[in-house]
Simulated scan of single mutants.
Amino acid sequence: MTDESVIGAIMLAYQGDVPGASVLVIRDGKSVVRKAYGFANLEDHELTTAATNFRLASVTKQFTAAAILLLAEDGRLSIDDRMRQWLPSLPAVTDPITIRQLLSHTGGMIDYEDLMPVTQRTQLRDSDVLHLLEAQDHLYFAPGTHYRYSNGGYSMLALIVEKASGLRFEDFLKQRIFEPLGMRNTLAYVNGGPPVPHRAYGYSESATGWARTDQSTTSAVLGDGGIYSSIDDLDRWDAALYDDRLLSDASRKLAFTAWTTTDDANVSYGFGWRITGESLWHSGESIGFRNVFVRYPQRHLSVIILSNRNGPEPYRMALAIARLFLGET
């Protein structure tokens, strides 16, 4: 079987009249696989393409981290600044938490998802997350002593970007990352703002078929998961992570350093990236979307899978595809 047919077999469940996926394999700076399967919009029968924009969910975190690192390069902030220097309305118990700890999920803040009222029907924004955290008088652990994945921490980072830059988070990303890299159709989506071009809608499968489940009460929080992008645009992002066109070598080393162990003994965490052996990766899961971005920088290989459905989690599919190009069986 050819690599393309093997990949087709791996992605078989995404083919046909079902929510789809886009797959990109980049080797030595060139796209060697760029495939799309299924539908971006079942109701209107819009096929998925390489330009289809999916909600990245937590794949967003690498961009939030990059925004912080750009501001550090500008001298607008230091990653060792205390969080409350920028967000003074937070309670005194959070005073020891640094930006570095937010980036590496070692701050210990309470999960904002657990603080939401059960009656919550309207979508939260990053500022709403701040208000939820303002009322907390305890942490999970002393900052810097443990790892606990924190969407709220990355929401706070988005607010710090706004404070330090004087721009809305979505505008900072557009001006400093997306436009310079030619990621023209990528955006942090805000209801009432620019629409998502070539938008994929999220779906969940039940006994009666596929139902649209595109947004939840947390889907409007930007810092932890609000970016929409395509494999075409992520191709440009991947290229920028090899040289100084966006981030300096020092900043990229900071992002890709294993700052902490995680709850998986085989995985460490950098700034917006998980680190496993020779790979850098991050998955993204939200209602109706499952994505993964896996990079092998020393081998100049990347595999990206974006999908608009509630399962399966595509990390192992990406690893299976990567093995085809790494000479592994």
Rank of each mutant, 00 (worst) to 15 (best):
Q85T: 15
A200E: 13
L301K: 03
A51I: 02
I287Q: 14
L47S: 12
Y203T: 11
L222D: 05
G270P: 12
G192D: 09
G288E: 04
V190M: 06
F39D: 06
N185Q: 15
G144C: 12
N185M: 07
G192L: 10
Y147E: 07
Q101D: 08
R184Y: 03
S230C: 08
T119F: 08
L301Q: 04
A51Y: 12
T122V: 06
K163G: 01
S219C: 10
K253H: 14
V33R: 08
N191M: 09
G209W: 10
P312H: 04
G225F: 00
K61F: 01
Y201G: 05
K174S: 12
F293H: 15
H45P: 01
K35L: 13
I26R: 10
I305K: 01
L159E: 03
G75W: 02
I10C: 01
N151R: 02
Y14N: 13
L187E: 07
T145S: 13
Q215G: 00
S216L: 10
L56M: 14
R76C: 13
S251T: 12
W259C: 02
Q62K: 09
Y112E: 09
Y189Q: 12
L90D: 02
Y37G: 00
T122D: 11
A9F: 00
D224Q: 10
D17P: 04
G8D: 15
R323L: 00
S216D: 15
R290W: 01
A200P: 13
S229F: 11
W259P: 03
D114E: 13
A158V: 05
N191A: 15
M317L: 14
T64F: 12
H146M: 11
P297E: 03
Q101H: 07
L124K: 08
I321T: 00
W259N: 06
Q298K: 14
D232G: 03
T208Q: 13
I227T: 05
P197H: 05
Y242Q: 06
